[in-house]
């Protein structure tokens, strides 16, 4: 009598369903990989075709081959740089608050609000920056754009900082406290530096996220076909905005330029994400 080899129809059906669902899970994973590869490959091929020295040194045109993206690259660097100047200290301090002093109701509320903030549409943040900084300053300006991007960076940095600080072993903290260091010095000189690798990951990811943001920029810096390095005055160009403008052109040549600019943007974002990932991996292995 073979007990284990009994294969009733019911059992075969169960095994079949199990196999089918396993295959489904593989297909789902494939469904995530295929579009990513398609997008990346397409951007790479079309984008490289649009690249030329003039593309990186020229100003955009509304016709022909679309001109260049010099002003957009400068604009993105200025705006993302400014946003980082505002968002990084803000995010780290708020993260320190949550990790070190946030084990109470207020801390939970702020933590929850931070999580919810990551889900607020960026265009709404753009409207906020528009009302606060564009209307009051009499026109579109780079600072308003940077401000809106900084708001989008803050929740990401805050939550990573909190999590990374919480991972710092209590023994390290105690060692510093036992030397007679006050708590704030312990945090600033011991805890935060220990968690710095992880915090850097959060910072890079947040920069990668906002570098590609377009919606709030429409409402704050508007976009421009000229180079504008002033921070508080006048419309400014940025890479994602430039792609948007290019892509709405009726000319095939200008659309090509949109792919070229997309490749620049995607490379930027991917390098930042990869760097973030590497930092995290190195931390994990040591």
């Amino acid at each position: 009598m073979s007990q284990l080899a009994t294969t009733s129809a019911r059992y075969r059906r169960r095994k079949l369903l199990d196999k089918a669902m396993t295959v489904m899970a593989y297909l789902c994973t494939l469904a995530a990989i295929v579009p990513l590869v398609l997008v990346l490959v397409y951007v790479a091929i079309k984008g490289l075709g649009a690249w030329s020295p003039q593309f990186f040194t020229g100003l955009p045109q509304l016709f022909g081959n679309g001109g260049g993206i010099y002003n957009a690259i400068i604009g993105t660097v200025i705006i993302v740089g400014l946003a980082s100047l505002m968002g990084i200290p803000f995010g780290i301090m708020a993260g320190i608050y949550l990790a070190e002093y946030g084990n109470n109701h207020l801390g939970s509320l702020i933590r929850f609000t931070t999580d919810v903030m990551t889900g607020i549409p960026s265009i709404v943040v753009g409207i906020f920056a528009y009302g606060l900084l564009v209307v009051s300053m009499g026109g579109f300006n780079a600072f308003a754009g940077a401000f809106s991007l900084a708001i989008l960076m803050v929740p990401i940095i805050t939550r990573t900082t909190e999590e990374m600080i919480r991972l710092v072993p209590g023994s390290i903290r105690e060692a510093a406290l036992a030397l007679g260091a006050p708590r704030w010095k312990t945090i600033v000189y011991v805890v935060v530096p220990t968690a710095l690798g992880g915090i850097m990951t959060g910072i890079l990811l947040s920069i990668a996220r906002v570098a590609g943001e377009t919606a709030p920029l429409i409402l704050t810096i508007l976009g421009s076909n000229f180079l504008n390095t002033r921070i508080f005055q006048g419309p400014v160009a940025a890479l994602p905005l430039q792609i948007y403008d290019f892509s709405r052109s009726p000319y095939a040549g200008v659309i090509e330029a949109a792919w070229g600019a997309s490749l620049v943007l995607v490379l930027m974002v991917l390098i930042l994400s990869l760097a973030a990932r590497l930092i995290l991996a190195r931390r994990g292995s040591t």
């Binding site: 009598m1 073979s2 007990q3 284990l4 080899a5 009994t6 059992y11 169960r14 095994k15």
Partner: peptide
Amino acid sequence: LLYGEDVCGRDVDPVQVRRK
């Protein structure tokens, strides 16, 4: 062995074993 039958064999399904 479960009543003389190999439980760990390659072709034996753990699902069947766990019913027993």
